[in-house]
Nucleic acid binder design. Structure first.
Lengths: 129, 129, 129, 129
DNA sequence: GTGGTCTAGACCACG
DNA sequence: GTGGTCTAGACCACC
């Protein structure tokens, strides 16, 4: 059971699933060519509707992260492509950082948080900023 | 015209407006006690409905960022903020960073982006990570 | 300066003024025949618009609590009349108590609060419930 | 039809709906995990607009009393409540009691009323004040 | 099916 | 002038 849901989280279920899988791919837990669990299995495990999981997989497919093969399951794709356009990504980074600032965190604390998140993806930029 | 909309952006109009104002407050362009433009004016400028802007202002009020006084306009609040809970903020930082990684950016590049965003808020943590 | 305003209070200014004067009348600080300060004076003291105070006085007049005499100021009325109908009063008591219950207060604590409020009006029902 | 409206009541329709549901929750008629009727159904029953009911549900959600899940309806929340701050609650209790005093009720009668309201919530503090 | 967003437009409450 | 409430109705997102 790689995927969990958080009922307290206000984001839609299918987004939570997609986010979690993106994270697994980004940190290498799911590698190119590896199969994702079937829609049915995940839906069963989490106790949610099939459509919910299917929506998550579809979103990932549209981003080019996974390949859905008729009757043959879903596998992690080779090329890393078609990520939502840069500007949108920057917008969400900006929104996240703005809220952290408003929450009272210092710039240093925020950068530390970002480093921790990178570390959770096994990425360790040396302090050579 | 402090506020702009991006039709290509998938997020709701009222969220875009709220995000923009949060950013203006975070970077000090809107300071405590300063009046925000009226709902009617913003709606007119952007060519959207009054209710759309009112929804944005209400969201900001619920966060404690602004004070909406019935016949007297909207001003940036003095007191501190009831920011959305820390865990949610971290989740959105994580999601943003994950997507940037998948888009192929290096850890160093991502931290640099984060620093740029902080710089746009006039926050300059020294490289003392 | 018998009257104060609380900017943090979400209720309209004129309601705050009217509530305060009702409280003063109920506890006998303002007695039948006594003059209220003029609209102009209160507005000046509080730094608000004349219309705001006038609205408060008008509401009190409609309830029969005060009498506004052309050019002769406003005085506390003799008869205690025309209070908003019983059902409305009960509704607001109910709403207040419901919220206190939801906030986690015990029944005993709530009754104690009510007694304190009565005491602030110099009313001391003996524990003969 | 758990909910009714009173056209004579001066408070906004959405507030009346929210107040009524708060009362139902406080007295246990709606328990944790139970589903509220859908926005559409309530709106239909009461003959008001969808948005009016949606506003009531949103207010309850912001207080933490209910959980609104997009395609999945609205249920009574488990966790505790982010009640409006204590001082505001006390203000409304004070206002209600003041008006009852001005309406001519004795202190004893008012406490009896308060006990009745608590009783309607199935709360029976023993006369051990 | 559910709730969310947005529009156009009316009328009210507040300062 | 300001913001608040409500309507009617459209279309979208989610489960």
């Amino acid at each position: 059971m790689l995927i969990t849901l958080n009922a307290a989280d206000s984001s839609p279920l299918y987004k939570q699933v997609a986010d979690r899988i993106r994270h697994l791919i980004a940190r290498g837990a799911l590698r190119e060519g590896m199969a994702l669990p079937s829609v049915r299995q995940v839906a069963g495990d989490l106790g949610v509707n099939l459509n919910t999981i299917a929506a998550a997989y579809r979103e990932l497919q549209e981003e080019g992260l996974v390949t859905v093969r008729h009757g043959a399951g879903t596998v992690v794709a080779a090329g890393r492509v078609r990520a939502p356009d840069r500007e949108e990504l920057r917008k969400s980074l900006r929104a996240a950082i703005t809220q952290l600032v408003l929450a009272g965190l210092s710039g240093t604390a925020i950068l530390k948080l970002a480093e921790q998140e990178l570390a959770s993806l096994d990425i360790h930029p040396k302090g050579d900023l």
